[in-house]
Computed example of a mutant assay.
Amino acid sequence: MRYLSLFSGMEAAHLAWAPLGWECVAVAEIEPAACALLRHRLPDVPNLGSVTEITDEQIAVLGGIDVVIGGSPCQGLSVAGRRAGLDDARSGLFHEQMRIFNAARHLCGARFLVWENVPGAFSSNQGRDFAVVVGAMAGSVVPVPRDGWGCEGVALGDNGLVEWSVLDAQWFGVAQRRRRVFSVLDTGNWSDRPPVLLEPESMRRHPPARPRPYPTIDCGIWRKRQCNQWVRNGFAIARPGGVSNPTPLEVERLFGAPDNWTLVPDQNGALLNDGPRYRMLGNSFAVPVIRWIGTRIDAAAQAALRKVA
């Protein structure tokens, strides 16, 4: 499987999918610290830069692509923001993600699109923004459900089948409560494969029965703890005697990343300080969640191959 990563950040998709044998054909990132990490960790992978400037010609030369993945910026959709929705210049980059996927589909044979965002996407603009997202992915007009979006669903349109589900990182073996909406578009023969995101109810609603070394709070900028203290950098860890900010190393572990993955030289050769490392991690995917999605996409693609055989 070969994939194109958009809004790449620290490239959690690489950490999740390289063990599956997947190849990253290109990344797309403009934030300086993340670009420094990508240069250092994936020196042979081209960085296409801003998603607004990626051309069809750049995509075509990448060759075959199976999957496009990206979590377009969430600021306009988050309940912690001003709720401008897809009209926000950052969250509106979802449309660029769709443009790039459509080019990759027609020029490079891409079958799957993976999109990630905050659960606030369900309520943004009275639910209409998520209707736009699902409709654009599926290639159909999708109404807002009378009772709201719930935590999962499917939509069918001219482009194919879209599944979406809210997944929490703590269900996948990391000590972090991080609920995110994941949507997967399959433009291939979806009727001949198992579901990608939809799983038995026990997986969605009940965290696995395993000890947690550090009970944690939800991640996000300026979250409020139960004891009415504010926590900067979006992370906090309960320790004997109180709550404190974790180190970048501890946050890497909360996301399932290798130790010191984000400790790389900047453009001047000095190691990144803690601030940029926290920001990269806070904007990232939880690695084991993306790995699970990758195994499900793999299973879907293999089912289609068996059907053909």
Score class of each variant (00 low, 15 high):
1 M>N: 06
3 Y>P: 00
3 Y>F: 07
6 L>R: 02
8 S>Y: 08
9 G>T: 04
15 L>P: 03
16 A>F: 04
17 W>H: 11
18 A>Y: 11
19 P>A: 02
22 W>C: 04
25 V>L: 00
25 V>A: 15
30 I>Y: 14
31 E>F: 11
33 A>C: 10
35 C>F: 10
36 A>F: 00
36 A>I: 08
43 P>Y: 07
47 N>Q: 08
47 N>R: 03
50 S>D: 15
53 E>C: 14
54 I>D: 00
59 I>C: 10
61 V>N: 11
61 V>D: 10
62 L>S: 08
63 G>K: 12
66 D>S: 06
66 D>A: 05
68 V>R: 04
70 G>P: 07
74 C>H: 11
75 Q>V: 07
75 Q>H: 09
79 V>W: 13
81 G>W: 04
82 R>M: 10
85 G>Y: 08
87 D>K: 15
90 R>Y: 07
91 S>M: 04
91 S>W: 04
96 E>W: 05
96 E>G: 06
97 Q>T: 08
98 M>Y: 06
98 M>D: 01
98 M>E: 03
102 N>P: 11
110 A>K: 00
114 V>L: 14
115 W>I: 01
120 G>H: 01
128 R>C: 10
134 V>Q: 08
136 A>E: 15
137 M>K: 07
137 M>H: 01
138 A>S: 08
139 G>P: 04
139 G>E: 03
140 S>Q: 15
143 P>Q: 07
144 V>F: 05
144 V>G: 02
145 P>Q: 04
149 W>H: 09
152 E>K: 14
152 E>D: 13
160 G>Y: 04
161 L>M: 03
161 L>E: 06
162 V>F: 04
163 E>P: 05
164 W>E: 01
166 V>I: 15
167 L>N: 13
171 W>D: 14
172 F>T: 00
173 G>K: 10
174 V>Q: 10
176 Q>M: 00
178 R>E: 09
179 R>W: 12
179 R>E: 13
181 V>W: 09
183 S>N: 00
192 D>M: 11
200 P>T: 07
200 P>C: 07
201 E>K: 14
202 S>N: 12
202 S>Q: 12
202 S>D: 14
204 R>L: 15
204 R>F: 12
204 R>T: 10
206 H>N: 13
207 P>T: 01
210 R>T: 12
210 R>A: 10
211 P>D: 07
217 I>A: 14
219 C>Y: 11
220 G>A: 01
222 W>F: 14
222 W>D: 14
223 R>A: 07
223 R>L: 00
228 N>S: 15
230 W>M: 11
232 R>W: 12
236 A>C: 11
237 I>N: 10
238 A>K: 14
241 G>D: 03
245 N>D: 04
246 P>Q: 11
246 P>M: 09
246 P>F: 03
248 P>A: 00
251 V>A: 09
252 E>N: 10
254 L>Y: 12
256 G>R: 06
258 P>T: 09
261 W>V: 06
264 V>D: 02
265 P>Y: 06
268 N>H: 15
269 G>H: 13
272 L>F: 02
277 R>T: 03
280 M>S: 03
283 N>V: 01
286 A>R: 08
287 V>W: 07
298 D>I: 13
299 A>K: 05
299 A>Q: 13
300 A>M: 11
302 Q>Y: 13
305 L>V: 10
305 L>D: 15
305 L>Y: 12
307 K>M: 05
307 K>D: 12
